[in-house]
Each structure stands twice: as structure tokens, then as C-alpha cells.
């Protein structure tokens, strides 16, 4: 919400400043009001930065533990050379975002990847699951018919395996028989950078037709089914962790920037405020003196 308010504040402030330069009017009150509100905004952004810094350290620690886990869950698909089936065009995309904004472009970049996919020809076979409200609000208006389900309440607390299992369960019980798909998420690289990445999703059928599956011993469909379900939730778990860490780090940076911008704005406003105050005093003096002079 603040992000939307901030540009408005900006426009009004420049207006006040211009106003000042044009006619030396006493808008002392309006400037002091504006100054106060910008100071409050700065306080908010600063404390948000502090909060996300604390959350970020925790998310990064969690992510370190989740990395081998996530890598381990995709190794099998690599080694067995599982490929998406050519005769099944049905695809499922999972957008890993969260409910909360004010964190730079983390959510929009994930949603954009999916939007670009949906703009390509043959998009009728693509369905989307939105994890987090942000991707939903981005995609809903134009691509509402592609969305099969939405998960809320992501991002307030650090993601747990149970969250991942719930999402996986929702996917498996959605009744949508996809041939292949992708989990689109933000991969955390460092405090200042993250990139969009994806994890592959395969249906049981495409795994069964993988060329190298025959080298794997003693497989039955029950084992495969359970294996797939568990690996789906571990991949989602991993993507959630990566997303949470990227989000917190991005929020930290963007809130830092916002505090800096607010600081600049405060400096400018203070200057204008003092100048106006001086002008008002001078004008009052002139009025008194000229009044006295007229009486003589």
C-alpha cells in the first residue's frame, strides 16, 4: 500500500515547492504537515527494513538446510532422463509468490514468466496454480480462466513442510491431469540478487516412459506413486524456501532504498520549510514597519 502512496506524496511535494517559488505564499502549515507525514513514512520503512533483516537471516539459515534437500529431489529426474511427453500438451505452472508486497520485483518477475508463457500460442493447454495472493492479483484479470487454484496465507510465517504438503495435495486432488509442468520460483543468489528459476514437474506416465527407468530395480506402481507425491512436496518445499529468502532480501533492499528516498525528501522539505518561515517573518516585519511609517 505504501508503494502506491509514495509517488502521490512525491508529486504533491514538488507541487508545494513550485508553488513556493512562484508566489512567496505562506504555506507553512501544509509544508509542516507534509514533513510530518514523510517522517512517519520513513519510520515505517525503516522498521520494516529491520524486521525483514531479522526474517532474512532466519530464512537464509533455513535455506541452507533446504538446498541439498531440493537438489536431491530433482537428481532422479536428471539421471533417469525423464522428458515431458510429446503427445500430452497439458501443462501445469505453479507460481511461487507470497501474499505480501513491498519487496521489489520478486512477485512480478515470477508472474511475468508465467504471463509470457500464457501469451504464446497453444496456451489453452496451460493451467496455473497461484501460490500467494500476489501472483493471483497479477494474473487474474486477463488469465483468470487458466487459474485452477490459489493458496493464501503464504509469507507471514516461514514456510514449513506441512504447507508444501498441503499445496502438493491440492495439486494432486485438483483433478487436472497434466503431462508436464514447471514450478516457477525465485532462486536466491545473494542479498542483492535473485533470479527466476524453475523445477520440472512430471506426470507418472512420463516417468514410466523415461528411457533410463529400466535401469532402476524393483519398481512397482505403488512405490512410484508415493515416490512422486513425496518428491512433489519436497520440490514445493524447496521452492517455498528459496522464494521466502529472496523475498525477505528483496524487501530489505527496497525498504532501505525507500528510507533513503524519504530522507532526501525530508531534507528538501526542511529547507523549504525554514525558507518559508523566514519569508513569513520578513513579510510581517515589513508590514509593521511600513504601517508605522505611514502613520508618521
Amino acid at each position: 500500500m505504501l508503494g502506491r502512496v509514495a509517488p502521490g506524496v512525491c508529486a504533491q511535494v514538488t507541487m508545494v515547492v513550485n508553488h513556493q517559488q512562484n508566489r512567496n505564499m505562506a504555506t507553512l502549515k501544509s509544508i509542516s504537515l507534509r514533513l510530518k507525514s514523510v517522517k512517519n513514512i520513513q519510520k515505517i520503512t525503516q522498521s520494516m527494513k529491520m524486521v525483514s533483516a531479522a526474517k532474512y537471516t532466519r530464512a537464509e539459515r533455513d535455506l541452507k538446510a533446504a538446498r541439498p534437500y531440493g537438489e536431491g529431489s530433482v537428481i532422479f529426474y536428471d539421471r533417469a532422463e525423464v522428458t515431458p511427453p510429446e503427445d500430452d500438451p497439458k501443462q501445469l505452472y505453479i507460481a511461487m509468490t507470497s501474499d505480501r508486497g513491498l519487496c521489489g520485483a520478486v512477485h512480478t518477475s515470477v508472474s511475468k514468466v508465467i504471463r509470457n508463457k500464457l501469451q504464446e500460442p497453444g496456451a489453452d493447454n496451460i493451467k496455473v496454480i497461484c501460490v500467494g495472493d500476489k501472483s493471483r492479483s497479477f494474473l487474474q484479470r486477463l488469465y483468470g480462466k487458466h487459474i485452477i487454484s490459489v493458496c493464501n496465507e503464504i509469507g507471514r510465517l516461514p514456510p514449513t513442510f506441512k504447507d508444501a504438503a498441503t499445496i502438493a495435495n491440492a495439486i494432486l486432488t485438483s483433478g487436472y491431469e497434466f503431462g508436464s509442468g514447471k514450478i516457477v520460483y525465485n532462486k536466491f543468489r545473494s542479498v542483492v540478487s535473485y533470479e527466476q528459476s524453475d523445477l520440472p514437474l512430471f506426470s507418472l506416465k512420463s516417468i514410466e516412459s523415461a528411457p533410463k527407468l529400466a535401469t532402476y530395480d524393483s519398481l512397482d506402481s505403488d512405490v512410484m506413486q508415493s515416490y512422486m507425491e513425496f518428491s512433489l512436496s519436497s520440490m514445493i518445499f524447496y521452492a517455498l524456501k528459496e522464494g521466502a529468502c529472496s523475498e525477505q532480501s528483496a524487501r530489505m533492499t527496497s525498504m532501505d532504498n525507500a528510507s533513503k528516498n524519504a530522507g532526501e525528501m525530508i531534507d528538501k522539505l526542511t529547507l523549504t520549510f525554514n525558507r518559508t518561515r523566514q519569508a513569513v517573518i520578513t513579510r510581517e516585519l515589513i508590514e509593521i514597519i511600513s504601517g508605522a511609517a505611514a502613520l508618521e
Partner: peptide, 19 residues
């Protein structure tokens, strides 16, 4: 508690547990 075991052809083993 629960999870998966993968043994690959390069002899790498992944044991992933829920907890």
C-alpha cells in the same frame, strides 16, 4: 518419519525425509 530413497546409476544415494 517418512520420505524417499533414490539410488542412482552413478552410485549416488539420496535419502530425503520429511523429518
Amino acid at each position: 518419519s517418512s520420505g524417499t530413497i533414490t539410488v542412482n546409476d552413478d552410485s549416488s544415494v539420496q535419502v530425503l525425509a520429511e523429518e
